[in-house]
């Protein structure tokens, strides 16, 4: 893998740090007029998701990380692994619980998911920003109660629990923002 110097650090560049693949979020050049130059870098650890700031002396370099984001189709889970397929090559990948993490609750079969591959194996997954999922469990709907702002918890087909308006009932399909877990509206029929 190539190595990158601080002046090549750009948002999105994948580098190795302390044995983990990381993504550069932001790189700020800091230099006193008469002094040492530094790069104050925001990094995201792609394994743990932790975002933090480290300062380098300008000119220091880091190994690149063999990390690729690939859009795949989610196939199924066998209980231990979650299986994904690259649509153009039909190549299949299996991700473990660490890789799917919290995002498991947004995984619907046949949805397009971005799988982050590290040295060829799934490291993390990113669901689409918006998903449409069916309500499988919630308190009975209150017909006509569309004006009031009240909400109730609803369990969706993937297991995610989101707050939905009171008038919705089991069997309806809702749009949810996976980044915030917020209900966006009823899915277009």
């Amino acid at each position: 893998m190539a190595s990158y110097s601080t002046n090549e650090f750009k948002s999105g560049l994948k580098v190795m740090l302390d044995g983990d693949p990381c993504s550069i979020v932001e790189n700020e050049f800091v230099k006193p007029g008469k002094g040492q130059a530094f790069n104050r870098v925001r990094l995201k650890n792609l394994r743990s998701g932790r975002v933090w700031e480290r300062t380098f002396k300008s000119g220091e370099s880091l190994e690149g990380a063999d990390v690729m984001d690939v859009e795949m189709e989610y196939l199924y889970s066998d209980g231990e692994f979650w299986h994904f397929m690259q649509p153009d090559t039909f190549e299949q990948y299996q991700a473990d619980a660490n890789a799917v993490g919290e995002n498991v609750k947004w995984l619907k079969e046949q949805d397009k998911i971005v799988v982050t591959l590290y040295n060829g194996s799934p490291l993390a997954i990113t669901p689409p920003n918006h998903v449409e999922l069916e309500i499988v469990e919630t308190d009975p709907g209150l017909k006509g109660d569309t004006a009031q702002g009240g909400t109730k918890p609803a369990t969706l087909s993937t297991g995610a629990v989101v707050k939905v308006p009171l008038f919705l009932s089991i069997g309806e399909v809702v749009r949810v923002d996976t980044r915030t877990g917020e209900y966006l509206g009823r899915a277009a029929k």
Partner: peptide, 21 residues
């Protein structure tokens, strides 16, 4: 106070680092 991993620097470098950050 900061996440830095360089070492054996002259005094002025540490002063510049701490002052700027």
């Amino acid at each position: 106070k900061l996440d830095v991993h360089f070492d054996s620097e002259p005094k002025a470098t540490w002063l510049d680092l701490l002052f700027s950050h």
